[in-house]
Design a protein around this nucleic acid. Structure first.
Length: 295
DNA sequence: GCGTGTCAAGTGAAA
DNA sequence: TTTCACTTGACACGC
């Protein structure tokens, strides 16, 4: 079991997601920004290793406009050695890595332009992991997309889009259950037609489900991961008390986390804490996991 | 040096 | 019809 946090480290004085406005685009600005982003990524990974946080979600913004037509610069060649070096560090320390393309990636959109830009975004993020020479256990997580008033058709479009993706993207793509549209059950249907593993989100499952208990849901999601893809990845978060439904807690509630762990029932998984205070909560969770002999 | 409006991109629910 | 939420954070303009 590995534990981690997404994208941003609040302890270190650097960010791996520095960007700039489209209007400020220049090749010079791009190279400078990407250089500092990758430099910071390396520092974050070193922090994580030193602190026993072995699961990390890399920012989608490390290469600004990574899939935008304005960015015609050959950043892949320019940063190849840097990425190989970071990849070697990741492999040497057996870090689990994910990326999460944002809500603009919609494989099942009825609008062809949106599907094409989604492909381009996936290609950009996949290229980062490929250039790092990471194995298939490094994943790209996306959601099911829209429903457009007809879920069976929307699922069919997702499946069709999946089948025409390049093999390198297919090898890394996983689907995450969301809190409004695509439940675990919907993801399982997509899994059956594509083989795509399901990244499980406990909080989304609490918001939208088909009656499966947490233990059963974890078991079902876990079964969609073949050995070469690594163990089940999950996003963990919980409802902020008294806040709008779907709002995450600002810091981890250890009692709730401890209760959640009872549902694992021996299952080995990697847990991404989607909690606002990032590594602070991840460190608390790690301490609890050590205390309970999970790690 | 601040404060703050705005930022490439989609979808659906709420206001 | 518009705003808001979604990992929103932080860029960059205007004072």
């Amino acid at each position: 079991m590995k534990i981690g946090y997404p994208c941003i480290n609040e302890t270190l004085p650097c960010s791996s997601a520095t960007t700039f406005r489209l209007a400020s685009y220049s090749e010079e600005r791009l190279i400078q920004t990407v250089t500092t982003n990758f430099d910071c990524l390396q520092k974050i990974l070193e922090f994580n290793v030193q602190n026993g946080l072995l699961f990390f979600r890399m920012s989608s913004d490390m290469v600004p406009f990574g899939s935008h037509p304005i960015n015609s610069y050959n950043w892949k060649d320019h940063f190849k050695d840097t990425l190989v070096s970071i990849g070697n560090y990741i492999k040497a320390h057996q870090l689990r890595i994910s990326m999460h393309p944002d809500q603009f990636v919609v494989l099942n959109s009825p609008t062809e332009r949106i599907v094409q830009s989604s492909f381009a975004e996936l290609a950009y993020q996949c290229a980062i992991m490929d250039l790092m020479e990471l194995d298939k256990s490094a994943k790209l997580q996306i959601h099911g997309g829209g429903v457009y008033g007809d879920k069976p058709s929307a699922i069919r479009r997702f499946v069709d889009a999946y089948h025409v993706l390049p093999d390198n993207i297919k090898a890394r793509l996983v689907i995450e259950n969301d809190d409004r549209l695509y439940s675990l059950q919907d993801c399982l249907e997509i899994h059956e037609q594509t083989g795509i593993p399901i990244l499980f989100d406990n909080f989304h499952h609490e918001c939208l489900n088909n009656g499966e208990s947490m233990q059963e849901a974890l078991r079902l999601a876990s079964q969609t991961w073949p050995p070469e893809d690594g163990i089940l990845m999950m996003d963990y978060s919980s409802q902020a008390p008294g806040e709008r439904k779907g709002k995450h807690t600002a810091s981890i509630e250890l009692d709730m986390f401890r209760e959640f762990l009872t549902h694992l029932n021996g299952l080995d998984i990697d847990i991404m804490l989607e909690i606002k205070d990032k590594e602070a909560s991840a460190l608390l969770a790690k301490e609890l996991l050590q205390e309970l002999n999970f790690i």
